[in-house]
Design a protein around this nucleic acid. Structure first.
Length: 210
DNA sequence: ACATTAAGTGATT
DNA sequence: AATCACTTAATGT
């Protein structure tokens, strides 16, 4: 695991900082589906993703979900940074999209290392910036794209983070993630299949034009 | 063979 | 795009 960590972050941080992260941070390997952060919970750790992917989603009062974006290896959750600065509770939920390895950094270290290490400061600002972009993209997708384009983007994103063009998922699950009904997804998937974008099988979708 | 769950379809709002 | 009602197909026991 240390080699994986160094592979992803080694060129970003100086040796001292790497050592601090490794000694203070807590390594965790979580299986697919693990809920890492829930809405309303206070955040005590900031996760650094070593491998795998995490799905970030929002939920309304009825428990209806809406996927915002995925974070991958080399990424961190910008929400924790916001939380750290503003002392607020989490406004999002984070679920492991697949088996995922992370290092949990205590939130208080974020600020300390910001002052101590230039590379850390860059990393935090950089990832905050990237998340902001992702968020804008997510808004665009929801507000301006038709459902079929939205669906295709979702499928491509999912194929991307899973490093596999074959996605194991039911129409129902997609409908939940995109906050629509199963029937709509089935119909749109069918039309995407006819357009030659994807191939459908039970519990499985193959994305063709990646 | 039967029950359960996933997916496809027409019609209506 | 959502919902209903129904059919068909795949899968588990």
């Amino acid at each position: 695991m240390q080699s994986d960590f160094n592979f992803n972050y080694g060129h970003l941080f100086e040796k001292e900082l790497l050592n601090e992260i490794l000694s203070i941070g807590e390594y965790k390997k979580v299986p697919e589906g693990t809920e890492l952060i829930d809405i309303g919970s206070s955040i005590k750790f900031m996760p650094l993703v070593i491998s795998g992917a995490i799905k970030i989603l929002r939920e309304d009062e009825n428990g209806d979900e809406l996927v915002l974006y995925f974070i991958e290896q080399g990424d961190t959750c910008a929400m924790t940074i916001t939380c750290c600065l503003g002392q607020s509770k989490s406004k999002i939920r984070a679920v492991a999209e697949r088996d995922t390895e992370i290092i949990m950094i205590p939130v208080k270290m974020i600020g300390e290392w910001m002052n101590k290490y230039q590379t850390w400061q860059n990393f935090i600002l950089q990832s905050y910036h990237e998340r902001m972009q992702e968020l804008l993209e997510a808004i665009d997708t929801i507000a301006f794209l038709n459902m079929d384009e939205r669906l295709l983007k979702y499928l491509k994103d999912k194929a991307m983070v899973n490093r596999d063009e074959v996605i194991q998922v039911t129409h129902k699950e997609i409908a939940n993630d995109l906050h629509t009904s199963r029937v709509v997804i089935s119909r749109l998937l069918k039309s995407l299949e006819i357009k030659g974008e994807i191939q459908l099988n039970r519990n499985q979708i193959t994305v063709l034009n990646l």
